Amino acid sequence: MNTRHDAFPVMVLLFASIFWGLSWLPLKILHQSGFDGSLIVFFAYALLSLAFIPFLLQQKKYLVSHLRPWLLIALLGGGANLAFNTALIYGEVIRVMVLFYLLPLWGVLGGKFILKEHVDAKGWLAAGLAIFGAFLIVGGMTIFENPPGWVDGVALLSGFLFAMNNLAFRAHQDIPMVPKLSALFIGTMILSGVLALVTDAPLPNLIHQSDWALLVFYGLVWLLIANYGSQWGVTHMPASRSSVIIIMELVVAVISAVLLTNESLDITESIGGFLILCAALLEALRSQSHIAAAPH
């Protein structure tokens, strides 16, 4: 066994997960510099889409013959990316990331009722922990006095769409990486563009060149490393191992938000976050789990 060869995918996926965990930082900076949230997402993914179109055209025969699953991934993955980025831009990083990681719940329910998979006791335990953890995160019993805000809903939606997109990946595992990534990028670009038009998002004004440079760097470098690295990594190692490594994204996001901002969780929210983390680990370690990681 080549240990060095086996370690390389782990390092790639770990590196990509760190980029995902820190993705809130350029998003916050760009928003504070004057970019509307939907336009940040639109510009960043438009750059990625343009970069991938030449490669997609090389596989146009495949695209034509697999148009329906491609469009499904574009819709689900694009919606997940848009919701995830929007929640990070406007919400508290730790709260958004923890709510996003209700993936065990959506994964178990989707696998059971959509893919008709068998769910064992660990799966149902993971789902239960995720539900109770989310209940604590959004306020516990005080939820009846102070309903969660819209950002909480968008964060939950992002996790749900991400899990549904993973199910689409599992149902169409023959989709190569280039069409898969291009579907995610183009879908995100179109949906964020529609949102910007519907909400009449103000065009950026008096933006410094350094901020435009950061946006280009975020779109063409940061997101490309995160997306391609995560996709390449999970295709070169067992799903159970990759699922555990991807949880590093949540750890990095929480630690960085605590160190770089004034964010924190109270005791109830902390317990909820711990339960969701346990649920994610349980789901990742399920022997029959075959959850592929999709880009955000």
Rank of each mutant, 00 (worst) to 15 (best):
V98F: 12
V119Q: 15
Y101N: 12
W124L: 03
R95L: 12
H118V: 10
I89K: 00
A130P: 10
A121S: 12
D120G: 13
Y101F: 15
F84P: 06
V96E: 06
A121I: 11
K112W: 15
I114G: 10
F100P: 08
N81C: 09
G111Q: 12
A130K: 06
Y90T: 06
A121P: 01
I114K: 09
W124D: 04
V108T: 14
G111T: 05
A126V: 00
A80I: 02
R95D: 11
A87G: 03
G78R: 03
A83C: 14
L82C: 07
H118E: 14
I131P: 02
P104E: 11
I94E: 05
G128S: 10
G123K: 09
L88A: 07
F113Q: 11
H118T: 14
E117H: 09
N85K: 00
L115E: 15
L88D: 04
A127P: 09
G77N: 02
L88E: 08
A126L: 01
L115T: 12
G79K: 08
I89M: 09
L102H: 11
K112P: 02
A80L: 04
W124M: 10
A80Y: 02
G123N: 07
F113S: 09
L105K: 13
F84K: 08
F84H: 04
I131D: 00
M97G: 12
I94C: 01
E117F: 00
Y101A: 04
L115A: 15
T86D: 01
L102M: 15
E92A: 06
L125D: 00
R95G: 00
V108M: 14
H118F: 10
G111H: 13
A83R: 04
V108D: 11
